[in-house]
Design a protein around this nucleic acid. Structure first.
Length: 458
DNA sequence: TCAACTGGCACTTTTGAACTGC
DNA sequence: AGCAGTTCAAAAGTGCCAGTTG
């Protein structure tokens, strides 16, 4: 326990809001994230993206690949991805379209994928696009490999979190900036439902090359051809990048590393996680030592960086929307909207106060009380952060995205993304997490929930 | 009965060790 | 000895499909 406290104090010292960082203002206002291969994502999105999930874990295709700008070059950041349900529905594929098939199943344990490079300097993250190629999805609720657990026939929205933190221990007391790209929404399936999606995947995923229809060759007739391919593949490999390229872009008129490609900038949600100074309020709960978590399932090689996609994409801020732009944790600017939205943009989303403080379903009165407190003081980051003040990630993680992002989606592009549930909720990512190999975080909602309530009442 | 799921299959790409030549 | 390039086999990642499950 002592070790935890020491770790925390040393780590938070460098990220403490009270320790004015010389470049803090620079950091807070300029962060941008854009989605690479957005055209490919859009081509899937237009049809209705499906992602296969398997018991052993399946990569995404297209996979998440983003580039960031506006980071402090010499500050360290942790970059993470998680998946949140888009709504409260379960879907089925019927008559060549998706339709609601009932209420969503209870959400499985929420996990966060931490990019293996984390933590790294801002200059490192900005150097080239950040690939989440190795992120895997599973439908196995008992998964021990740290893959992100999803329900089949449910819709999810990936979220990208940028956290300024010197190490993984201090993440939860650091400033969060969260980005979403609506075109990355997908339906988790165990078998592809829409044949158009299957075709798109086969056409663009190099691993599925064997299923491409070329002339009259069927799958079972490609043995001879594959021999020829394998002979030349070795030579090709030498000149190719380690990360698979998207080849054969028949439907998407651009190449993987085309510097002129259009990439989409994200919505940005902002949040802050206040410092916890009371070591009795360990967010890890009990006696759990974060260092134990870090190595509990084998050594995690943080130096084993993902192979990033080479080449720099042009910066094309054609779709910028900021929602609740993050202000400094030490922000006390009375001019800042108390809902957390700085009045910088004329088309900035606004949130009625009643939405922020409305009672939440299935919660005790004490829980709701804690929640309301956090909502009204934390959304957007203009809070008066209190030591050990709780956040309610256990609740947020279980809420469908539509409860809080509908308005965002509308702001993002009202013509493309409808607003099914314009009830934005404040949203905090970090819950209990232990670090797993391959960069996955695990969440422990129960412990976090207890921590939240305890902290509030204190 | 049937939608959803699972495991095995064929196929491709990726990875790293072994080998060769300079 | 050190380095770069090539070869090869194993591992890993695909979608397909038949059988199983609830």
């Amino acid at each position: 326990m002592e070790q935890i406290a020491d770790l925390r104090h040393s780590s938070t010292a460098s990220t403490s809001p009270s320790m004015a960082h010389p470049a803090e203002s620079y950091q807070q206002g300029n962060m941008r994230m854009k989605l690479e291969y957005s055209e490919l994502w859009k081509s899937f999105h237009d049809i209705g993206t499906e992602m296969v999930i398997t018991k052993s874990g399946r990569r995404m295709f297209p996979y998440c690949n983003v580039s960031v700008s506006g980071l402090v070059p010499y500050a360290k950041y942790v970059i993470m991805v998680d998946m949140v349900p888009v709504d409260n529905s379960r879907y089925k594929w019927n008559n060549e379209q998706w339709e609601v098939a009932g209420k969503a199943e209870p959400q499985p344990p929420c996990r966060t994928y931490v990019h293996p490079d984390s933590p790294a300097l801002g200059s490192h993250w900005m150097k080239q696009p950040i690939s989440f190629l190795k992120l895997k999805l599973t439908n196995n609720p008992l998964d021990q490999r740290g893959h992100i657990i999803l329900h089949s026939m449910h819709r999810y929205q990936p979220r990208f979190h940028v956290v300024q933190a010197d190490d993984l221990y201090s993440v939860r007391w650091s400033v969060f900036q969260t980005f979403i790209f609506p075109e990355t929404t997908f339906t988790a399936v165990t078998v592809y439902q829409n044949t158009k999606i299957t075709k798109l995947k086969i056409d663009h995923n190099p691993f599925a090359k064997g299923f491409r229809e070329e002339g009259t060759h069927g799958k079972r007739h490609r043995a001879q051809k594959s021999q020829l391919c394998s002979e030349s593949s070795a030579k090709k490999l030498k000149s190719s990048d380690k990360e698979p390229e998207f080849r054969c872009f028949q439907d998407v008129p651009r190449l993987p590393y085309d510097p002129h490609r259009e990439d989409s900038e994200s919505l940005m949600l902002s949040k802050e996680v206040p410092m916890a100074q009371d070591e009795h309020m360990s967010p890890w709960g009990g006696e759990q030592d974060p260092s134990q978590s870090l190595h509990s399932e084998g050594a995690m090689d943080y130096t084993n960086s993902e192979q990033l996609v080479p080449g720099q994409a042009n910066y094309q801020p054609h779709r910028t929307q900021e929602f609740g732009r993050m202000s400094s944790p030490s922000c006390t600017d009375a001019q800042t909207d108390c809902h957390g939205f700085e009045s910088r943009s004329t088309d900035m989303a606004t949130v009625p106060e009643q939405e922020l403080s409305r009672p939440l379903p299935s919660m005790s009165s004490s829980q709701s009380k804690a929640l309301d407190f956090s909502m009204t003081t934390n959304i957007g980051g203009c809070s008066k952060a209190r030591p050990g003040m709780p956040l309610y990630s256990h609740y947020n993680m279980e809420q469908p995205l539509s409860h809080w992002s509908g308005a965002l989606a509308g702001q993002y592009s009202s013509s493309t993304y409808p607003q099914p549930h314009p009830h934005p909720h404040p949203h905090h990512l970090m819950s209990e997490h232990s670090i797993h190999p391959s960069g996955y975080h695990h969440s422990n909602m129960a412990e976090w929930s207890q921590y939240s309530l305890f902290s509030y009442s204190s």
